[in-house]
């Protein structure tokens, strides 16, 4: 047990180190692509806490992503905030809205939970369109020049530099992975899995399962919002596309593909899916066909995803 835990930690750190080393050899294009993928991977990490560990399938996580995106972007655009303060603000707002939505939506479960989250997210999406005087609607807003660099700890950070963006994203991803890793291997993780496996029994053992689920929801929503804020600030654009149902589906797909309930699964899923769609879009405009086919194949044949299947087959020690 002690041994496997050590090798598992080594694996996680190894993956992050590999991503760091990659930054030296990647072409411009792949560096940019992987930056994007890593942001989406943070989003998927967040999603996975709810879906993979607590067993709650949300169809509305785009609303948290968009929440972070707008909470970071709007103050920058209208109030001239600096990037770091906007980022922190977005984290707080995301946590707050996740608490609020969780408190309402968690009264349902199963299919009802899926539909309720889908509808809440649809309302959020429509709201970004309806308040287009503020949000810019479909057209979106381009963040102003002053938000393309910021000073922190006496260092000037230039967000127009691809390398800088890569390292910032990698830093955030590493932090997220390590936090999630600690949580799922600690007390909270055991509580989550207990709820997933048998909520009734957990409740009878004296746990407040609603609170356990709410806690997971808040962490999940906050990570998703953080990813949204990162995306908006790094690429200086916020728009309602990010709130659309497509983003809720994508993150589900990343998680399912990589393996729900594994820390590295969502990251792997993001990489495979992103590159697959990129590849397909070179051949057909109907590249979302890949999304559909992969979803069906996964749910019918590999509901555990890549890492989940590996873990089951070879009894690996992946957390």
């Amino acid at each position: 047990m002690e041994n496997s835990r050590k090798s598992s930690l080594v694996l996680h750190i190894g993956v992050l180190a590999l991503l760091f080393l990659l930054s030296f050899i990647l072409s411009d294009y792949h560096q940019l692509t992987i930056t994007r993928i890593m942001v989406l991977a943070i989003f998927a990490l967040g999603y996975n806490i709810l879906f993979g560990y607590v067993g709650l399938l949300s169809l509305g996580h785009a609303m948290f992503f968009a929440c972070g995106l707008y909470a970071a972007g709007l103050p920058v655009y209208y109030l001239g905030w600096e990037v770091p303060s906007a980022f922190l603000f977005a984290i707080v707002i995301s946590a707050f809205s996740a608490t609020l939505i969780g408190a309402i939506a968690l009264r349902t479960q199963g299919v009802a939970f899926m539909i309720v989250t889908l509808m809440f997210s649809q309302v959020a999406y429509l709201a970004t369109l309806y308040f287009s005087d503020i949000t810019g609607g479909d057209e979106g807003l381009v963040l102003p020049e002053h938000a393309r660099s910021f000073a922190i700890l006496g260092m000037q950070v230039d967000l127009t530099s691809p390398q800088t963006r890569y390292y910032i994203t990698l830093g955030l991803l590493s932090a997220s992975v390590l936090i999630v890793y600690r949580w799922v291997n600690g007390g909270p993780g055991r509580e989550w899995v207990a709820v997933r496996e048998n909520e009734l029994r957990t409740r009878m053992l004296g746990y407040n399962t609603f609170l356990i689920k709410l806690k997971a929801m808040v962490i999940s929503g906050t990570l998703s919002g953080g990813a949204g804020a990162t995306y908006g600030l790094l690429f200086a654009y916020i728009g309602s596309t990010f709130a659309s149902i497509q983003y809720s589906i994508d993150v589900l797909l990343f998680t399912l593909l990589g393996g729900a309930g594994t820390v590295l699964g969502p990251i792997l899923g993001s990489f495979i899916m992103f590159y697959m769609i990129d590849f397909f879009s070179g051949y057909t405009t109907a590249y979302l066909l890949a999304t559909g086919v992969v979803l069906i194949l996964l749910i019918v044949y590999f509901p555990l995803g890549v890492l989940g299947t590996l873990r089951k087959k070879w009894r690996l020690w992946l957390p």
Binding site: E139, G140, V142, L143, F235, A236, Y237, G239
Partner: peptide, 9 residues
């Protein structure tokens, strides 16, 4: 809206 979204990049 595509022009406006693409121009900064």
């Amino acid at each position: 809206h595509v022009v406006i979204g693409s121009s900064p990049r």
